[in-house]
């Protein structure tokens, strides 16, 4: 565990908690893409099936458990408890167009052709594009509430911090995982436009509003 990895995990955890708290306290999931949340739940479940056969540490187990539970709770809020506030007209991204290619790619390019490794690889590929429905929703409505922006910033920073972690591990431990690195770069690049708007607008107290 190095500082980048720890900060990445904390940023990831913060993002998930901010989102749940936003939905819970405002009793509304307006502006949040249920499609992205479904993709994240698939990502966590596919990747953390290793909870069943690999023990790493208490930290590892607890974090994986929290990510799966929190993402399922978010889906429950969006599709059941606060269903009336869900903006499904704008949330029209077709997630099968992300799931199918990620699955095909995982079958073709993986570390080992075994069910758990393929699911792990699938989760890495799917995670890299899972935010697209959310970014699509923001671009359709042309704006995002500041709390939604904070959520997106924390979520985007997490993989960026993981990239620094991988650079560090390459030099310090001679370890690198090309699948995770390439997917992590794609994932982080997808947020760049948002990061720019976040830094130039939201941090200066303005609302995140896209140019018309």
């Amino acid at each position: 565990m190095n500082i980048f990895r720890l900060l990445g995990d904390l940023s990831h955890l913060l993002a998930i908690i901010v989102l749940l708290l936003k939905i819970w306290t405002t009793r509304s999931c307006a502006g949040i893409s249920g499609k992205s949340q479904i993709l994240f739940a698939i990502v966590y479940i596919a990747r953390y099936l290793d909870l069943l056969n690999t023990y790493i540490s208490a930290y590892n187990t607890i974090m994986k458990f929290v990510f799966i539970s929190a993402s399922l709770a978010t889906i429950f809020f969006m599709y059941v408890k606060f269903k009336a506030t869900y903006d499904h007209n704008h949330d029209s991204f077709r997630i099968e167009f992300l799931i199918a290619p990620a699955l095909v790619l995982a079958l073709l390019i993986n570390h080992e052709f075994s069910p758990l490794e393929i699911l792990w690889t699938f989760s890495i590929y799917l995670e890299s594009v899972a935010i697209l429905p959310q970014l699509f929703l923001v671009s359709k409505t042309g704006e995002a509430e500041s709390i939604t922006s904070h959520y997106l910033f924390a979520l985007g920073s997490y993989r960026g911090l993981y990239l620094l972690n991988w650079v560090y591990r390459y030099y310090a431990e001679d370890h690198y995982d090309l699948i995770a690195i390439v997917a992590g770069v794609v994932q982080t690049v997808l947020y760049c436009d948002f990061f720019y708007l976040y830094i130039t607008k939201v941090l200066k107290g303005k609302k995140l509003q896209l140019p018309a």
């Binding site: 990831h12 290793d50 790493i56 590892n60 570390h111 490794e117 792990w120 993981y162 995770a180």
Partner: peptide, 10 residues
């Protein structure tokens, strides 16, 4: 060790 590294990260 490679696989463990993969399962260690979140």
């Amino acid at each position: 060790a490679e696989a463990n590294n993969r399962h260690d990260e979140l």
